[in-house]
């Protein structure tokens, strides 16, 4: 026996997490610089966006405002000033909502998070199951149905699918409302849970439907490899039944790519939610991002960009940790 550590003890894990935290810090620095440069070079004038188009100010007043906001200083100074306030947790004030960016994001993020969480769970579980079933019936009807669905949905943009769902389920069939998170004209506080749920279904299904395809196809491929592997052939030769093979070997060996993909999918999920929320006028973070960009709300825009970077990074981080937990070879390498 050599002196390698038994599989249970993994002091590697804290090191892995520490490394990722450092990576997150550098990522955020990079993203903030990039976003800052892009916004500075965009046609958005923060002062115009703030005061509105219909207010006339003299050049002298404008110059005073610029000086007060620090816009006359060098870009580096401006960036450092912004980054400094960010580090203290101050994201500034949204010019559209006239409220702190953190408050606006907090309110919207909740709605988006629920949407994304449901879509994510549904697409992950359903996608894995469909992919596994397809691989186990490769070439037969179940496989062809799953493959057809996946190829079609992979080629379908989320916003278009959302429009189709709206036309079919809301306009023709009248089963679901056309948009928003609650009935029109009712204050948000008075919307019941049932009404919320009713408005929630279509955007959630739209987001899930696209995600399923991806996971299903990757799982199908991986599961096919697993089923053709030497160790599954050996398992058959040892008299293990189909269910035992799935439980003993199939699941663990095929779930790794699905998990990686599913957490890496956070990025697409966020992108998809921007589109789906816009189509359904669903007041989440995604539709707020579109509003902020179109309305020239720089603090809100930058805030959402940073939050989404953290969100996507978190997804990848969880994928790494979960993979290391499933596959000891990754754990040893990390």
């Amino acid at each position: 026996m050599n002196a390698r550590r038994p599989a249970g003890a993994v002091p590697v894990m804290p090191r892995l997490i520490l490394l990722r935290v450092l990576r997150l810090a550098s990522l955020l620095a990079g993203v903030s610089v990039l976003a800052f440069v892009l916004v500075r070079n965009s046609p958005i004038d923060p002062i115009q966006a703030y005061i509105g188009a219909d207010v006339d100010l003299t050049d002298e007043q404008l110059a005073k405002l610029r000086e007060r906001w620090g816009l006359d200083r060098s870009p580096v100074e401006q960036y450092l000033a912004w980054a400094g306030t960010l580090l203290r947790g101050d994201f500034g004030t949204s010019t559209l909502y006239k409220a702190p960016v953190t408050d606006v994001m907090g309110a919207r993020f909740g709605a988006s998070l629920a949407l994304m969480a449901v879509a994510w769970t549904l697409s992950g579980v359903l996608g894995y199951l469909l992919g596994a079933v397809a691989a186990m019936h490769r070439g037969r009807l179940a496989d062809r149905v799953v493959s057809w669905y996946s190829y079609t949905l992979s080629a379908t943009p989320a916003f278009w699918l959302g429009i189709v769902f709206l036309v079919v389920f809301s306009v023709w069939l009248g089963w679901f409302p056309v948009g928003l998170a609650g009935p029109q004209g009712v204050p948000a506080a008075d919307v019941t849970f049932a009404q919320r749920l009713h408005h929630f279904v279509l955007p959630a299904i739209t987001l899930s439907a696209v995600g399923v395809a991806n996971i299903a196809m990757h799982t199908r491929e991986k599961m096919t490899d697993v089923l053709n592997s030497d160790y599954v052939a050996f398992a058959r030769a040892r008299g293990e039944t189909g269910a035992q093979i799935f439980k003993n070997h199939g699941f663990r060996n095929s779930v790794v790519p699905a998990v990686t993909l599913q957490f890496a999918y956070f990025a697409e999920l966020f992108g998809g939610s921007v589109l789906a929320e816009t189509v359904f006028s669903y007041p989440g973070l995604g539709s707020t991002l579109t509003e902020a960009a179109l309305g020239g709300d720089v603090p809100l825009l930058l805030g959402i960009v940073l939050v989404s970077a953290v969100f996507v990074f978190t997804g990848n981080l969880i994928a790494d940790v979960v993979n290391a937990a499933i596959d000891p070879r990754i754990r040893r390498r990390a």
Binding site: A7, D230, Y231, F234, A235, R238, N248, R252
Partner: peptide, 21 residues
């Protein structure tokens, strides 16, 4: 009978599941 009365000793170590102790 497979695995109980008939047993197979395969050729390659790749016949072991890489993710199972």
């Amino acid at each position: 009978t497979l695995g109980r009365e008939i047993s197979y000793i395969p050729q390659s170590v790749t016949n072991l599941d890489p993710l199972m102790p």
